[in-house]
Nucleic acid binder design. Structure first.
Lengths: 337, 337
DNA sequence: ATATATTTCCGAAACGTTTCGGATAAAGGT
DNA sequence: ACCTTTATCCGAAACGTTTCGGAAATATAT
């Protein structure tokens, strides 16, 4: 493995000069610079980022803390799509990604700060953790630059990127109301998720705006899981036959709701309209195709990386960013007279 | 940031002793060891892996070269599932993952060896590259330990994990033949993929075994894309009306084939049976649900990580591993009399 | 000619570890 | 009493960079 010293020896200069030449400083003569570059190429030199990181105290590396990488989360590719977005932005900006795992017990032995400091990452992007995750407190307490995904909390060193979930939910409900629905139930995720909190808020505000009935028993949690959603929906509709539309906080749960409707002999959308959230791939393939709120998930990822890197490089930037949502109308909703 | 020196000072010993205590050597007295551990904890010490990597010439890091992380590949979660498997195995074995990107032009400026050497990764796992990718040659030429996914090539320093694609294809064709199909066409992927080569081989061998017609014009490439598959299938079936079953080298392409059949007014499975490959999530949701060949994708990933780490730690292991496939019968295939 | 500025280079320290080779002291053997 | 082993510790070098402060050589101004 050739080093900067080898180059210095061959080129007949000092390591200082080699370093400065390679890094484009201007206090090295053009001719010697060319010579050094040539030698470096000839010796097939690659810089050692470990050594560099050691002295510069920067690693040009971003730590990724993702909790949705277990077998269970494979159905929706939200996690993956965010990852792709991060990856794309980070790599264009010259940063590498290092993947921390948060679900195996093995890794949980280490604290967030340990994870980051051991690898000397410059900053971190955190996705998929719940409100009560101990990591979250640590993130907010530490001064490691960090971007949260879908958790709208901000400190001096942590920002976030998310969508306007209140607005997204409102779009869904507005759509249902325009179709003439009046008795709208909601299948929410779980208490640990900020997005659940906000989508519920949008749901409530929009109903109130139109002075439609708001009933506590029409709102149930489906844990963001298809099976759970199916069973709670079954119970919900059995006990509240007057419900004519359902707003689900995720498409995966909407799929469960769909199954429940089938079992109950309720036709979607003729007997009951359903709108989901996320616009997962499945949404356009299931039967009927789901009306849903789409998010630019890839962009969430790339914005997160961009935001973090701006923070790292002290470029002025707002510490929070929002990406758009849009209503996608398919066949699971229809007019109700 | 507290270092080993700080600990040494506070504990009143040398850095050598601290290092050896922290790493569990036996030439340090139990009492001083406890003391050092206590001080380390109190000072909230985290080891600097950069420094360690520099002197040990090992980073406990695995490089990940993945090509399926662009916007286009989101439909099938094969890539992601492999990633999850790798992540799980690697993290239990104490390795971190660093993500290299191979599709942005930015990263393509660097060669495979540069990528690996700069970050001083101990080894690499490579996924989704084509037979003619220049990286592949480099991987085989270099002596960096590497595991290829779905590319059955082996050298002193590179192994692979894959499924028996010949066998998988045979299972599919056997199923169709047992159902009474005789005129079986194939929608393959593209020439750049080993899996295509092998699935074709399985298809041909099985047909030959039963002395069924093998026609070159019944075999077309769908580029592993839904749209391409739809158009080639359309053309194929229009020109060869006698075809009564289709073997698709991926579920995504099977979905395309499904659409083509719809447009042609051919009912699946009554007019024509279709079997896919991969068992993607969509396969069980589309209409009709797809009969397909399932792979334990998660396991492909975890085996890859396990294999690589065995190689890195000089544990004896076969350089190639196979994971199982199984036929999953759903509603896109039926008897043909 | 001298004084000053500019260009081009370099020595050495620093980053935080690990590890080789040996030192010291205590324990054991004869 | 002396020699040998064992347990415990440490100094210093090494890993491959970057960078501070300054030196030498050359150009420019007076």
């Amino acid at each position: 493995m050739t080093t900067i010293k080898d180059i210095a020896k061959v080129a007949g200069v000092s390591v200082t000069t080699v370093s400065r030449a390679l890094n484009g400083y201007f206090d090295v003569n053009e001719k010697t610079k060319q010579k050094i570059l040539a030698v470096a190429k000839e010796l097939n030199y690659s810089p050692n980022t470990l050594a560099r990181g050691l002295v510069m105290k920067k690693s040009k590396t971003i730590g990724l803390l993702v909790s949705g990488m277990s077998k269970e989360n494979l159905k929706d590719n939200f996690t993956f799509e965010v990852l792709c977005g991060i990856n794309e932005a980070a790599s264009t900006l010259g940063y590498d990604l290092i993947l921390f795992n948060t679900n195996t017990t093995k890794q949980r032995e280490k604290t967030y700060t340990q994870l980051c400091r051991e690898r000397r990452v410059d900053g971190a992007i955190v996705q998929g953790i719940k409100k009560d995750d101990p990591y979250l407190k640590e993130i907010l307490d530490s001064d490691i630059p960090c971007v949260l995904i879908d958790i709208p909390i901000q400190t001096d060193s942590v920002g976030y990127v998310t969508t306007d979930n209140v607005l997204g939910a409102k779009k869904a409900i507005e759509h249902l109301i325009q179709l003439g629905h009046k008795n709208i139930g909601m299948i929410n995720g779980h208490e640990g998720a900020y997005v659940s909190e906000e989508r519920l808020k949008g749901y409530l505000e929009k109903l109130t705006e139109y002075q439609l009935p708001v009933k506590k028993e029409w709102i149930v949690d489906g844990a963001f899981e298809e099976e759970t959603s199916e069973s709670v929906t079954y119970k919900l509709l059995e006990e509240n036959n007057e419900i004519d539309a359902l707003f689900c906080a995720s498409d995966v749960m909407a799929l469960g709701a769909l199954k429940a409707c089938n079992k109950l002999g309720k036709a979607v959308p003729d007997d009951i309209s359903i709108v989901g959230y996320d616009n997962i791939t499945l949404a356009s393939y299931c039967l009927p195709p789901l009306t849903t709120i789409g998010q630019e998930v890839y962009k969430i990822g790339s914005e997160a990386a961009d935001l973090l890197i701006n923070m790292l490089e002290d470029k002025p930037t707002d510490l929070c960013r929002y990406v758009d949502t849009n209503l996608i109308i398919r066949d699971s909703t229809t007019k109700n007279y």
